[in-house]
Computed example of a mutant assay.
Amino acid sequence: MLFESACDMYITDRRKRLRMNTIEGYESAIRCHLLPRWSGREIESISDTELQDWVDGFELPGAAEKAFKTFRQVIRWSMRKLRLRMYDPTMAGIELPKKQPYRPKVLDAAGERSYLRALYGHECEAVAICSVTLGLRRGEACGLRWEDIDLRTGEVRVRRSRQVVSGEVVEVPPKTAKSARSCWLPRFAVQRLKAIRNGARGLLCELDPDTVARRIKAACRRAGAEWVSMTSCRHTWATLAVEAGVGIETIAMMMGHSNITTAYEHYIVPRPKICKDAQKAIERLVLSS
Rank of each mutant, 00 (worst) to 15 (best):
P101K: 12
Q100K: 15
S47M: 08
I23K: 08
R19H: 15
E283Q: 01
E226T: 06
R137F: 10
R221T: 09
K66A: 06
Y264D: 00
G245C: 13
L34Q: 04
M79I: 11
W146P: 07
K81P: 01
I196F: 03
G25Y: 06
E44S: 10
Q52N: 03
L107M: 08
Q52A: 06
K178P: 06
R117Q: 08
R103I: 11
A281W: 00
C275A: 04
S179F: 07
K175T: 11
D13Y: 13
R37F: 07
V74H: 02
A6D: 08
E243Q: 15
E243V: 14
R31W: 11
W237I: 05
G256S: 14
T90Y: 09
H33Q: 12
H266A: 13
K66I: 09
S232A: 14
I196L: 14
S114V: 03
D8G: 12
Q163H: 10
E155R: 01
A63K: 02
Y102M: 06
R37L: 02
S179I: 14
S5F: 14
Q100D: 14
T211C: 01
N21G: 12
K217R: 15
V132T: 12
D108L: 08
R138C: 14
C205Q: 01
V269N: 03
M230P: 04
W38R: 02
A110Q: 12
K280D: 00
A252H: 06
K99M: 15
D88S: 11
H33L: 06
H235N: 10
R137C: 09
S114K: 03
Y267A: 04
G256I: 13
A118D: 03
A244P: 05
V164L: 09
V269A: 02
D210F: 04
W227T: 06
G143S: 09
V286T: 00
R271A: 00
W77I: 03
S182T: 14
Y102K: 13
F58C: 00
K98L: 15
L60V: 05
L287Q: 00
G121C: 03
L51E: 02
G224Q: 06
D148A: 08
Y10S: 09
D150K: 01
F68G: 01
Y115R: 05
G57N: 03
T239Y: 03
C233A: 13
A219S: 05
M20V: 14
S78M: 09
E249H: 14
T236D: 12
A6L: 13
I46L: 08
R137G: 10
D48L: 04
S78W: 05
R80P: 05
I94V: 15
A244L: 12
I30S: 05
T70M: 05
I196E: 06
A141R: 03
A200V: 11
E42K: 08
R159H: 04
L35F: 08
V269K: 02
P174H: 07
Q279D: 00
I94H: 07
I129P: 01
H235Y: 06
E168S: 10
E24H: 13
P270W: 01
R187F: 01
M86I: 13
Y87V: 15
S47A: 12
A200F: 05
